[in-house]
Amino acid sequence: MPESKPLRERAHIWRDEFLLIASLIVFVGIVYALDNALQPAFTPSTLLLTGVFLALVPSVIWLMFFYVQDRLEPEPKHFVLGVFAIGALLAAAIGMPLVENVYRVSHWLYADTVTTILGGILVVGFVQEFLKYAAVRYSIYHSEEFDEPTDGVIYATAAGLGYAAVLNIQFVVSNGGVDLGAGVIRMAVVALAQASFSGITGYFLGRAKFESEKIWWMPLGITLAAVANGLFNWLRGRVVQTGVSLSGGSVNSWLGLALAAVMALAITGIILGLVRRSIRSAQAAK
């Protein structure tokens, strides 16, 4: 076991997580209200550019909080940005081609409920979670800058947001620009979800580096994240749509955002609790 600095609770990290959730909802509300109030007339290219810009906003918000608040013991900023970029690159170079072109999930994933859940976990979940894990594990993990368990959560969140940014940019580009009001909800959901799932991975990574965990520890972490990933996507689909009625078949995307926010809060809360407990037990041991 490598020698490490005393373990500390770093409250601001957790504050950042909760602030991210809150500010994302505020951001969505503002964009949605502006879009509805102003009904901006975009040309196709400005709509595309605006969409791409909005797709980056969730990641920028989190990074901003992180930069502004982490004064006491600043993580090297370029490392966080670097992991963010690796997450994004892996998503664009491997993740999305694998899921969409090799596995062609759009052709079969929605066949039935079991397939949606199973495929969501085994294909989409594992591809995404493994790549986000890899973004941390094969870059910063062995460096001195990864010097306490909480760092796992920070870097993994950065990787998750990088992944989410690419997913969202692809969402905008492949649709040739999206309706901003509806699209921004989707983007916030993706960012919250990706950040939360990799939070799970990050917690397991942090523990793996500084405590001797069993051999199944890290696979368990990835699997949990993948299961959360698959279940969430299925659940969101179930929550937002009701049966088609005489008034039509509408989809309530806000419920999806609420679900994502609740899930992000729950996961962050659980990880916070777990980290605190392990820090206390470590301190008690000393």
């Binding site: 079969w108 397939t115 976990i121 085994l122 979940g125 594992f126 894990y133 051999i215 520890w217 890290m218």
Partner: peptide, 29 residues
């Protein structure tokens, strides 16, 4: 050594999951 094993098991589990996912895709199709 344990770290290296852990790393390999993660890859192994992911490969198994992806193969199972492929089986899932094939069985649906």
């Amino acid at each position: 050594l344990g770290d290296r094993f852990a790393e390999i098991t993660v890859i192994a589990v992911t490969v198994v999951a992806l193969l199972a996912g492929w089986a899932c895709k094939t069985s649906v199709e």
